[in-house]
Design a protein around this nucleic acid. Structure first.
Lengths: 360, 360
DNA sequence: CTGAAAGCGCTTACAG
DNA sequence: CTGAAAGCGCTTACAG
């Protein structure tokens, strides 16, 4: 710290100092940058924080030194002074691994280069310390903000809590539950409608539906979208062909058994997600039914499992990763440089081999 | 800050102050605790850090105040003073979502109550900035340590880098690649051996094997364990029945097509993971082969997909979550209160319906 | 066993 | 447009 930079005009610094990425012992600090650039640390701070009140050549000099030394501000020190960290939390209770991983990848896409990091926090909405856990997590780490996915995102107690402790948040949900700046809306209704049009156009008249649990808003949205689309083709969604599942494989099996025991049975079943569709397919196969000749099956999500099943599953692909990216950008207040096209944010029907004309 | 605690002997504090979890405006700091407990902040610090050099009643008084106020030390301030954060990184390049999620859950199990949080960092081992990215991530956040999973965990460049920048790490791998205190070894060889015994005992003589890619050590371990087990029953693993896959569904399909085109074809195929086994099953089904009558298939992992396939897949269940928990505890140097039993740390064969006696 | 001083690397008022 | 002072909430030497 006794080394003084030589008084040149080029912003040179004493070559005996060794900062940054090349294996040096010590990381440069704001003081080093200030000294090398011959300004106060406050001015360096202004450059870091993109203050407009810095003269052009002063800024240039500082930026040169920053680049030269590989300086990066310490997030912990900055966080301490700012009274909040540079961490974004992902709070989720979704049981589907692929949803979680895709969401994480999307959020990370949005956070890239921002200096924020992602801290994951699975939780149990039914647990006794559910809200206290979330609160502790956020306050202890002074999180900059959190992303909430269904079904936690749909819990008003959580939204209230976050507002109360003044934690920024983005809710991802299939319905506009909150102010637009706090929401990313997924288009489940349109996605399910695509499934409805598909099955009606194939000629199905007796169509079954297995919904998710009422704790997920998407359960209702997908049902509504499916029903409306069928209606446009004059096909009813008869309540006797509707069952409430739980978005799990096992519930898909149980509901499919009930639906296929009806007389006459449905010629097609739309399951609220791929997991339940896998259950439907398993019941069909072990009952000796052929898909799609005897039963068409359509899922929702297009997770890996969809193409691994036999026959490969016709399903609705949800843009989870893109959604996560949008959520992250919105949360940290960064405008998207390469905003997704409408097609990229909308669910799309992926037709494989589990759906076809009825009967035969 | 002008409020002085009343001079009682019971450690009471001024009731007009409002800290902590009940919706108060301000969090208690170490200064508040020191004032209320009538000690210096340094002594409070000693209690926080479990220093043995605090007199019993002093400690009790401080702990009471801490409990009363709901005080929790600020990790950012502590981190700044300590020169390292209370964040653990998970660095991974495993493409299977369920592996990642299970690993995260396990690490979080181990971190619970420790004050550490988990920051996730997927990476691309083949990318141009692979090492620089990891380095930047760790140094910027001053991570307390990282957990590495295959195949990054098997990259010696990464281990060398971490040692150089003095970042604690735990490598999860199927071979003891490093000092024991830096390793959690998964028992892939035993798991694959179980698959070998199972198929040999069923009476299979022409047995196929699809390995993972050479970038994963588990590919070799699983092959070795399988081959050795078969040999114990006098069954050879003929190289002509062995193919190198990539741990992907598509590679499972490609390899299965080759193996089933042989004359005579194998009567059973052990795939290095469930994803590839799903590919094998799909090829079999669309070729009109019945499983297990015409072809037995065994996988490795027992991820959700295994029980969703048709027929449900016989596979080896790997204790990923338990492994993650052990890695976390080892990393933060906490002794396991409820250590897993040997059975919980060992892979186990799960027999479902995709395997049976050959021919028929 | 306990504490006063200095410091971790930044930022927020406040001046100029 | 720029800077000196004080502070964020902790810990590390150093004394006693």
């Amino acid at each position: 710290m006794t080394v003084t930079p030589p008084p040149t005009d080029h912003g040179d610094h004493d070559e005996s100092e060794d900062f940054g990425a090349s294996g040096g012992r010590r990381r440069a600090t704001i003081n080093d940058i200030a000294r090398l650039a011959r300004v106060s640390k406050k001015t360096v701070s202004r450059v870091i924080n993109r203050s407009p009140f810095v003269k052009g050549d002063t800024r240039a000099r500082i930026e040169a030194v920053i680049a030269q030394t590989g300086y990066a501000p310490d997030p912990q020190a900055r966080g301490l002074a700012f009274r909040r960290s540079f961490l974004i939390g992902l709070i989720y209770d979704n049981p589907t691994p692929q949803y979680v991983v895709n969401m994480q990848l999307g959020i990370l896409d949005g956070l890239k280069g921002s200096g924020f990091e992602l801290v994951v926090h699975p939780c149990d909405r039914a647990g006794p310390s559910f809200l206290a856990d979330i609160r502790g997590f956020i306050e202890r780490q002074r999180l900059a903000g959190v992303v909430l996915t269904p079904s936690v995102s749909e819990d008003e107690r959580v939204a209230k809590l976050l507002a109360q402790i003044e934690c920024d948040y983005i809710r991802i949900a299939s319905v506009e539950l909150d102010e637009p700046e706090r929401m990313i809306v997924s288009h489940d209704r349109q996605g399910a409608a695509a499934a409805g049009h598909h099955l009606a156009e194939l000629g199905h008249k007796r169509v079954g539906f297995i919904s998710g649990p009422p704790t997920f808003r998407s359960s209702f949205e997908r049902r509504a979208g499916f029903k409306t689309a069928l209606a446009e083709h004059g096909v009813p969604l008869d309540p006797k062909y509707v069952r409430e599942g739980a978005y799990t494989f096992e519930s898909g099996i149980a509901c499919a058994e009930q639906l296929l025991a009806l007389n006459p049975p449905p010629t097609a079943i739309f399951a609220g997600n791929d997991e339940m569709a896998a259950g439907v397919l398993q019941v069909a196969l072990r009952s000796g039914l052929r898909a799609p000749q005897d039963l068409s099956v359509v899922g929702f999500d297009d997770f890996q499992i969809a193409s691994r099943l036999w026959p490969p599953l016709t399903t609705v692909r949800a843009p989870t990763r893109v959604t996560g990216r949008m959520a992250a950008l919105k949360l940290i207040g960064v405008k998207d440089e390469t905003p997704p096209t409408p097609e990229e944010t909308l669910p799309v029907l992926v037709v494989r081999q589990s759906s076809g004309p009825p009967g035969r």
